[in-house]
Design a protein around this nucleic acid. Sequence first.
DNA 1: TCCATTTTTGTAATCATTACAAAGTATGGT
DNA 2: ACCATACTTTGTAATGATTACAAAAATGGA
Lengths: 132, 132
Amino acid sequence: MENACKHLKTRGIKPSYQRIKIFEYLLRNRNHPTVDMIYRKLVPRIPTLSKTTVYNTLNLFIEKEIASIIIIEENETRYDADTSVHGHFKCRKCTKVYDLDIDLSKIDIPMLAEHSVTEHHFYFKGICKNCR
Amino acid sequence: MENACKHLKTRGIKPSYQRIKIFEYLLRNRNHPTVDMIYRKLVPRIPTLSKTTVYNTLNLFIEKEIASIIIIEENETRYDADTSVHGHFKCRKCTKVYDLDIDLSKIDIPMLAEHSVTEHHFYFKGICKNCR
DNA sequence: TCCATTTTTGTAATCATTACAAAGTATGGT
DNA sequence: ACCATACTTTGTAATGATTACAAAAATGGA
């Protein structure tokens, strides 16, 4: 994935080994991982990896807007390489998080119009089609 | 507010002094308080109040569905006595959280239809009308 | 009043995240 | 190639929110 490296550069992020690996993980695993999931998956290949580095790197990605934060449960911060406007559905039973396409033109919230909105978050919970 | 007491009873919650006070706080202050805000406001009037009690009580309210959780920032859990479907807008500048009326019939998210949804969460960030 | 149950309380434990400083790595000029 | 400087990574310790737990207090019948 030379891809990841270039993507980092274009956003003004120096493509260090750790940053590339973490970003590649986000690109490949579209399962909205937590810091811990990323750390545990990468540390066998990068034995010196520190959890602090994962935190630092993700915070950098958020700041440079190449990743976004997903909060569905308290105390469970997840990350997503998809920074476009979209939503999430979490199944209470299997705990899987589904992505939802969101067409903003089909979302009518009059009271929003008076403010200047920079972030849109939509998430839902329930039982997914497979668990019903 | 005899109101609060009755409301608790109808949901099968024994109306202890602390529970009534905490619920009244939620009813009066529609500003989406954190546990700490509730605790600090009530402890002068209830000197023996423990933060653990506030946590326990709010968790009970959530379980019995007379209050709901609002998560807009990581590490900042807020509570709301309004359990109806509605949204929130948080201003980055003044940090105020506005309520948004949401008309679900005007929200079209096709991919949601295949699941069975029990919770709807909508939140937005940006700069509010007063701060622009 | 006495007993059983529930509620409250304080302390300690847990867990995710951040602060911080030391060690390591890259970079650019000479 | 060498050095000075800046940036990145790392480990440990600190922080802060939340929960676990057990003792104390309050409640509500019989």
